[in-house]
Structures are given as structure tokens and as C-alpha cells.
Nucleic acid binder design. Structure first.
Length: 887
RNA sequence: AGGCGCGUAGCUCAGUUGGCAGAGCGCUACCUCGACACGGUAGAAGUCGUUGGUUCAAGUCCAAUCGCGCCUACCA
């Protein structure tokens, strides 16, 4: 075989080679040339600790498709890459590795520990980037950023200081979600609520020096040690007598008052609510209103504090058991009922979160959210698919202040200093020399760091050099689209909207495309903490990157989650191999550049495939422009396999082999070259590697396919244009071939048995057309003889098929027994009768005839007519067969 | 508790304005015909979760219902 391509496509070496080539030749680089239309995407920065999972793979593939597509369209594309320092996650990873070496971070101290994290980042931090490259990501790597690098840290400080000065950042003592394992505050979003089968404990609080007392209900009995009141609804008659009374707090020697508050729900539990201001968000509010003390009985480490008296030092859940036991022996545990309720867990380490009182920094979000809300409502930013806008609105409308301080060491340390002398708080870009209030030089920086999402919120402009006024910002902000999963719509997208509008005065992106989440077989989110990930790298090794990319793209229908099936990846791997072999076949015939060739002497298949090419080009363009990735993949898949390969290549084989003369051969070569050339470009955004490899071997293709021009924009295809006649005519030719093949298949006639066929048609155009394309039918249906006549005498021993206005008669004498044909015809007739019955019913309905759109009625009538004719033809032949059988 | 989504061929999933149900894999039969067995040709296979409604016409719109899943939430 003298082909320049191997028989099977081998992705491994090809992918590595081309990626290196692209990178080395600056193919991914954006220019700052303002003349070309700008197209920008900022990557959702993966965690430095990240390991590539299917979620990334999908996310990266879709962005890469858009970027490659826009480059082919002639845009100046900036795909800004980078990674996120991922505060808690990274600190946990490094801490774990230190623990393995027997080192505790507290022994090490903050400075040394942070150094260790930087070391870790240097060693392992590029792992995720290398994996993105394996996916073919065409990011402008020269511009890679990191949320903790110098420039971004400067942006973070600047934003913090400005927001503080504008009164949008404040510090306060509030109840927050506390993870006792990570030893840090968590934002509301960072708490995962899970249904939990617990108990509701009913406890009697005796009236001090009196009889009886209210019974309160709680799911967390250990918190009672921190109770400072029992609240009842002021109008709850059951408790009127208790108003103003003091109660004996069990297991302690404290008394607490009964207070009235309308917050209490009379219908819940006993209608009496124990109030623990330090350990429950609602109780905190009630405590504030009633000026209650708020003793903290559970420490930050999850152990009971001195406030818990004799329970001091007990772990919180051990304390719960002890408290219950003591209450029971005191006879105060009135009732225990099973109770299912939501329990908050840390999203990083899954420890049960404790509401805890502490001093934290907050962003006042209301004002920022209003602007961000307005930007979407007014259409400055469009969320796709649209259904997510509702979620966005709801979140923005009910937004709560954002707790941004974290009690960890890895992250942007808050630029705030406290004067040890006078407690003055100074917020500034740099550490001040002296306290402006008392002139002391003893200033201590706030030990907390900022929530990771604080720096991520600035990503679209901080990566482009803000706060400096850079050419990059001018050129590429606002970015064109943000591509991300819905799981971080609030964490990230909403906050970028708020910060972008605040500091750039413009939305950060025109479009937000929310893609599916890749889930595991149980519909659970794939995440490394759950350990249910399927490694894309394994898939790439086995099937190649292009196969994985094509699969994800084909799966990426809007609005549905993805459950990945390896079988399907295999199917698309086969597609890539099919493309490869189509190219391989083509190269056996194309030896030179046909780019300049004028199309003349086109055969029907030539005209047809050019029409189809143009149509599918339009479809792919539309689909990509509106983020319907699966449609783009599906359309081009069908075109390549079932039109180009199955039909076109088969049709032109005789011409290519020179059996039809030089002119036909040349025109087939021109068209073949053109179709292959354009198809490669259409496919390149989805499967960059195999297309580049084939392109490289295509005679006349200049340079890298990455520098090609998307075919829709190329005028040289337009003169050929759409060709509805060709499509109509080909449809008939293909129908005739299909009909004969069907007879062959159904009758069990061997493919090697050439058939003698007679086609009769009363329609002159049909006869002419079929006569013109006789040879195609001859070849593809494998005939020994084909005669085309107007309606005439019908030979007896034939099998019958109908294609549009053509009656196809296949001579069966000596080939097949007629029982089979009789059975086949009967089957066809029954099927058609079923259809006819439906259509007749429809047409007999006056409502339909009068009210349906005329074209629909006409179409139905036409159809009925066709079916009827077809049935009659079959019926005639059935009779004939029967008479042969009888005779 | 509220909001959202899903239920279509054995499996995994498409189906943009209502107008003859599709793909991939699997399955059946036949086929090594000068690209490809990771292939070719033909075929079987769905009461589109259930019920009711709107309409001449419903997988598609409306209501209810069952079964899943997700997100948001301060009911102890």
C-alpha cells in the first residue's frame, strides 16, 4: 500500500509532537494589536493542588473549542491561564505531608510553614498545568498567572483597602461557621448541608426555687451549657405564668431568665426555645436584642471550654453523651425523639461545622449585589443556558454579607494592623511606621488571611495587570465569555460580577456559559475529596485526547449532567480513525495542491457534497456561536461518516480510478481536496491533534491548521453555493440504491451476486436523471444490468421496490425462492397500510383540513398519495408472485 | 421548607419555535468488493414515567401524580 498515512491512527506520538510544535511556534499567543477583533476568555483557575478530573476536561475542552474556533475566524484570541492558591485546600495538603514527616505546622511557625507551601507549589504546582496541556489547551502560557503572585497580591490589597475606605468592608463579632478541624471560619457557601438522622432531646428547665418549668427541645444538648435564657412567644398562654421568672440551668449552678420574643415558633417542639448566643445564629440575634451574655462553651478546637464547668476539655460529641447521661440521672431528660435535620459540614474536610462566635472581616454585599443584579437584568451579561439567570437573581436578591477572613496561614494576609498601644486599627497597602492615633510603633498585623474566592473574584482584571492601566486591559476587558460549571456560579461568577463592576465599572464578561457537571454513576459530583474520580489521563492514554474531547463535546448538551461511558469514548475514537482512513484514502489520489482549482464538469455527487459541506459549515458555525457544542459535534460527525465516507467516497471511486475519463477524475480530485480541506478546519476546534496531523500531509495546505481560515468566511466556496437540485437528485439516486440494497439484504442475496434490474417510471425527468447517473447505481447497488424504461410490460419474476416515482424491479429468476419475496411484500404492505390508516384518519378530520397550516395539509396529502401508489405497486407484484407460485 | 432539573430503543443520551420519534454502544443476518473489521450492507427494537387538560395535531404547552437528582434555607 503506497499511502503516506499509516493504517491506524496512533494518537500518542502525534499529540505530543504537535503540542510541542504549537507552543514552540507561539500559536497560542495573543497580540496586543488593537486592530484585530479581540476575543478573550479567562480560565477558571484550577487549584494548584488539583489533579485533572473530568470536570476540568470538559471545561477546558469547551474553552479550547471556542478559542481555536475564534482564531480560525480571524480573531485576536487571549486565553488567560493560571492557577488558584486555594487557601484551605493547599494548606491541608501541605500540612498532611508535613504530618507524614512528623512535623506539626505550629512547631514550624507561620513563616517557615508558608515557605514550605511555596516550596510545595514550586515542586508540584505545575502538575495541573501540564495536564491541561495534555488536553490540548491552547492557553497563552506566557501570561500564566497565580492568585498569590506579586501582581495579583497587589490587586488584592488595593481592593481590600479601597472597599474598607468606602465602608464596604467591616470587622465584627459575629456568629460564623467554624470548622474545628481546619480551625478557621467558613463562609456560608462553604458549608455543605446534609440530612442527618439525629434526635430531638426534650429537657426540663426547672423554675428556680419553684415548681415545674418549661421543657425545651434541642438537637445539640451540649450547647445548653452556654444557654443564657429561655425564650417563649409573648402570646403563648402556656407560658404566661413564667414571664420574668428565673430558671435553674440544669447541670450548672447558673440561673437564666425566661424572655419573650416573637421569633419563637409556638408550634415547634414545646414552644420554648433555649437560647445559646455563642453557638447558634438565631440565638445570637435574640441575645443581641435582649442584651444577653454569650459564653462560649465550645472552643475553637472543638473541646469544651472553662465556661462548660466540669465538662471542660471534653470533645464536643463526648460532652453531648455526658450531658445526656447526667440529665437522665437528674430526671430532667423528658423525652428523646428521632429527628431528621440538616447538619452543616466543612466542604473541605467534611467535619461537622460548629456555629461559633468570633471576630471576623466581612464584605457588605448589598450594594455590590444590586449592581451585579442589574447588569444581568439589563443584558450586559448574558447567562447561558438562560435557566441559570433565575438562580443568579435569587442568590443576588437574598445575598448576605460575605465573611472573608480565614484563620489559616496560606493566603493573602489581611492588610490591617492593630496598635498594641491603643488598639487603633489601620488598614493600608503597606505596613505603617507608626500608629496615626498614638504614634506607637508597636503595630501587629491581623494574622488572618482572605478567603480564596476574594482573590478569584478579581481574576478577570487582576490577571490583565490591574491596578495598572495596561494595554491588555484596554484590549481584552470585558472578556468575551466565561465558561464554567454551575457549582461555582455563586462562589465565583457572582463575586466576579460584583468586583468587576465595582473596580472596572464594566461587567467582567459578556457571556457566561454554564456547562454540565460530570457526575459519577450515582449522580454524585465527582470530586477528589469524595474519591470517585475517573482519571482523564487514563482515558487519554487508552483512546487519545481527541477521542476524549470529541466525546465530551458530543455529551455537552445544555442543561444536563454528564455520566461518562467508556463505550461511547470508544465510539468516538472509531470516528477519529474513520476520518484518518478517509484522509488516507484521499491521499492515494490527491498528489497536488488543488486549492486554486476552479470547479467545472462536476458530477452529481460532486455538486451534492459541496452543498452538504456548505450546509454543515453553516450548522457548525451557528452551533458554536450559540454554545451548542453537542450539535456542532453531531452535525460534523454525521457529515463526515454518513455523507462523505458512506456515500461520496464510494460514488467517486470509479472517477478517481480514472474509469470515467480525465475530466471526471480531475473534478473529483478538486472536490475531494476541497471537502477534506474544509472538513479538517471544521473539526479542528474539537479534535485539534488528528486534524493537524492530516493537514500536515495535505498537499497545498500551508503551515499549521491553526493558521487556517474558517471555511464559512471563504468566498471561494460560495460560487459553488447551495445546490438544492443536486440534493434533490442525489436523494433519488440514493433512494434507488437503498431500495435495491434493501431487497438484497432482506432476501439474503449474497453481495457477490450481481443483480439485473429494470427501473420503470412514467416521469420523464426521473428517467433522465437515473439514466444520467446509471453508472453510480450500477456500482453501488452491484448490478450486472440496468435498464430504464417508461411504464411498460412488467416482467413476472421480480422483486419490487419503489423510490419516489421510480418502480424498481429486481430479476429474481434463478436467484431466490418466491416465498421469501411474497412474505417481504406482505410485510411492506402491512406496514404501509398502517401508515395509510393514520393519514386517512387525519385527512378525514375536517378540523385538520380546515385549521392546520396549508403546507402541512398538502404535505400530508402528498404523502398519502405516495404511500397509496407504493402499496398498489407492491400489491400488483404480490399477485404476480402468487401466480408464479400457483403456476 | 422553598427553588430547579431529570424520567424517550437493552445501556448512555439527543430532540431550538407543537406537524410522520433520533444518535452512539449493544443485538440479529450477511460480507475480507483496490481507506478503514476501530470496517461495510441490511435489519429488529420505543403505548417518549403515569393521569387528565388545551389543540385539527402533544415527546414538545398546561395541571396533577409517582420515582430520582441537585441547589438554596436561621425553625430550636
Amino acid at each position: 500500500m503506497d499511502s503516506i498515512l499509516d493504517k491506524g491512527y496512533e494518537p500518542r506520538t502525534v499529540e505530543e509532537r504537535w503540542y510541542a510544535y504549537w507552543e514552540a511556534n507561539g500559536m497560542f499567543a495573543a497580540s496586543e494589536d488593537p486592530k484585530k477583533p479581540a476575543y478573550a476568555i479567562v480560565i477558571p483557575p484550577p487549584n494548584v493542588t488539583g489533579v485533572l478530573h473530568m470536570g476540568h476536561s470538559l471545561n477546558i475542552t469547551l474553552q479550547d473549542i471556542l478559542c481555536r474556533y475564534r482564531r480560525l475566524c480571524g480573531d485576536n484570541v487571549l486565553w488567560m491561564p493560571g492557577t488558584d492558591h486555594a487557601g484551605i485546600a493547599t494548606q491541608n495538603v501541605v500540612e498532611r505531608s508535613l504530618t507524614a514527616q512528623g512535623v506539626d505546622r505550629h512547631q514550624l511557625g507561620r513563616e517557615k510553614f508558608v515557605e514550605k507551601v511555596w516550596e510545595w507549589r514550586k515542586t508540584y504546582g505545575s502538575a495541573i498545568i501540564n495536564q491541561l496541556k495534555k488536553l490540548g489547551a491552547s492557553c497563552d502560557w506566557e501570561r500564566e498567572r497565580f492568585t498569590m503572585d506579586e501582581g495579583l497580591s497587589r490587586a488584592v490589597k488595593k481592593v481590600f483597602v479601597q472597599l474598607y475606605e468606602q465602608g464596604l468592608i467591616y470587622r465584627g463579632n459575629y456568629i460564623i461557621n467554624w470548622c474545628p478541624r481546619c480551625m478557621t471560619a467558613l463562609a456560608d457557601l462553604e458549608v455543605e448541608h446534609e440530612a442527618h438522622d439525629g434526635n430531638l432531646y426534650h429537657i426540663l428547665y426547672p423554675v428556680a426555687g419553684g415548681e415545674g418549668g418549661p421543657v425545651v427541645a434541642t438537637t445539640r444538648p451540649e450547647t445548653m451549657l452556654g444557654d443564657t435564657a429561655v425564650a417563649v412567644h409573648p402570646e403563648d398562654e402556656r407560658y404566661t405564668a413564667l414571664h420574668g421568672k428565673q430558671l435553674m440551668l440544669p447541670l450548672t449552678n447558673r440561673t437564666i431568665p425566661v424572655i419573650c420574643d416573637t421569633y419563637v415558633d409556638r408550634k415547634f417542639g414545646t414552644g420554648a426555645l433555649k437560647v445559646t448566643p455563642a453557638h447558634d445564629p438565631n440565638d445570637f440575634e435574640i441575645g443581641r436584642i435582649h442584651s444577653l451574655a454569650s459564653p462560649k462553651v465550645i472552643g475553637d478546637d472543638g473541646l469544651m471550654t472553662g465556661e462548660a464547668g466540669k465538662y471542660k476539655g471534653l470533645e464536643r460529641f463526648a460532652c453531648r453523651a455526658a450531658v445526656l447521661k447526667d440529665l437522665e440521672s437528674a430526671g430532667l431528660l423528658v423525652k428523646v425523639e428521632p429527628y431528621n435535620h440538616g447538619v452543616g459540614h466543612c466542604y473541605r474536610c467534611h467535619t461537622v461545622v460548629e456555629p461559633n462566635l468570633s471576630k471576623q472581616w466581612f464584605v457588605k454585599t448589598k450594594l455590590l449585589a444590586e449592581k451585579a443584579l442589574e447588569a444581568v437584568k439589563s443584558g450586559q451579561t448574558k447567562i447561558i443556558p438562560e435557566k441559570w439567570t433565575g438562580d443568579y437573581y435569587q442568590w443576588m436578591e437574598n445575598i448576605r454579607d460575605w465573611c472573608i477572613s480565614r484563620q489559616i496561614w496560606w493566603g493573602h494576609q489581611i492588610p490591617a494592623w492593630t496598635c498594641a498601644q491603643c488598639n487603633e486599627i489601620i488598614v493600608a497597602l503597606e505596613m505603617p511606621d507608626r500608629c496615626p492615633a498614638c504614634n506607637s510603633d508597636h503595630l501587629i498585623q491581623d494574622p488572618d488571611v482572605l478567603d480564596t474566592w476574594f482573590s478569584s473574584a478579581l481574576w478577570p482584571f487582576s490577571t490583565m495587570g490591574w491596578p495598572d492601566d495596561t494595554p491588555l486591559l484596554k484590549q481584552f476587558y470585558p472578556t468575551s465569555v466565561l465558561v464554567t460549571g454551575f457549582d461555582i456560579l455563586f462562589f465565583w461568577v457572582a463575586r466576579m460580577m460584583m468586583m468587576g463592576l465595582r473596580f472596572m465599572d464594566q461587567v467582567p464578561f459578556h457571556d457566561v456559559y454554564i456547562h454540565a457537571l460530570v457526575r459519577d454513576e450515582n449522580g454524585k459530583k465527582m470530586s477528589k475529596s469524595t474519591g470517585n474520580v475517573i482519571d482523564p489521563i487514563d482515558i487519554i492514554k487508552k483512546y487519545g485526547t481527541d477521542a476524549l474531547r470529541f466525546t465530551l463535546t458530543a455529551f455537552a448538551a445544555q442543561g444536563r449532567d454528564i455520566k461518562l461511558s467508556e463505550k461511547r469514548i470508544e465510539g468516538y475514537r472509531n470516528f477519529i480513525n474513520k476520518l484518518w482512513n478517509a484522509a488516507r484514502f484521499s491521499f492515494m489520489h490527491i498528489q497536488r495542491d488543488h486549492s486554486a482549482a476552479a470547479f467545472s464538469d462536476l458530477s452529481l455527487p460532486d455538486r451534492w457534497i459541496l452543498d452538504r459541506l456548505k450546509t454543515v459549515t453553516g450548522q457548525v458555525t451557528d452551533a458554536l456561536d450559540s454554545y451548542r457544542f453537542n450539535d456542532a459535534a453531531g452535525d460534523v460527525y454525521h457529515f463526515v461518516w454518513h455523507e462523505f465516507c458512506d456515500w461520496y467516497l464510494e460514488f467517486i471511486k470509479p472517477a478517481l480510478y480514472g474509469n470515467k475519463g480525465d475530466d471526471q477524475q480531475q473534478s473529483a480530485k478538486h472536490v475531494l481536496w476541497r471537502v477534506l480541506h474544509d472538513t479538517l478546519i471544521l473539526l479542528h476546534p474539537i479534535i485539534p491533534f488528528v486534524t493537524e496531523e492530516i493537514w500536515d500531509k495535505l498537499p497545498g495546505a500551508q503551515g499549521s491548521i491553526m493558521r487556517a481560515t474558517f471555511p464559512f468566511l471563504e468566498a471561494r466556496l460560495f460560487p459553488i453555493g447551495f445546490d438544492p437540485d443536486a440534493v434533490e437528485q442525489m436523494t433519488l439516486v440514493m433512494a434507488v440504491i437503498n431500495a435495491i440494497r434493501n431487497i438484497r439484504g432482506e432476501m439474503g442475496i449474497s453481495p457477490s451476486q450481481a443483480l439485473k434490474v429494470l427501473i420503470q417510471s412514467g416521469d420523464e425527468k426521473t428517467r433522465h436523471l437515473l439514466a444520467q447517473n446509471k453508472e453510480f447505481i450500477y456500482n453501488l447497488a452491484r448490478l450486472s444490468d440496468l435498464t430504464i424504461t417508461s411504464a411498460g410490460e412488467k416482467p413476472k419474476a421480480t422483486a419490487t421496490a419503489v423510490a419516489d416515482q421510480a418502480l424498481i424491479l429486481v430479476y429474481l429468476e434463478g436467484i431466490i425462492d418466491f416465498d421469501k419475496e411474497a412474505a417481504r411484500l406482505l410485510k411492506e404492505i402491512v406496514k404501509i397500510n398502517g401508515e395509510l390508516e393514520k393519514l386517512d384518519k387525519k385527512l378525514a378530520n375536517p378540523g385538520f383540513v380546515n385549521q392546520a397550516k396549508p403546507e402541512v395539509v398538502d404535505k400530508t396529502k402528498e404523502q398519502r398519495q405516495e404511500y397509496a401508489e407504493k402499496r398498489d405497486k407492491f400489491a400488483v407484484n404480490l399477485e404476480k408472485i402468487k401466480s408464479i407460485q400457483a403456476g
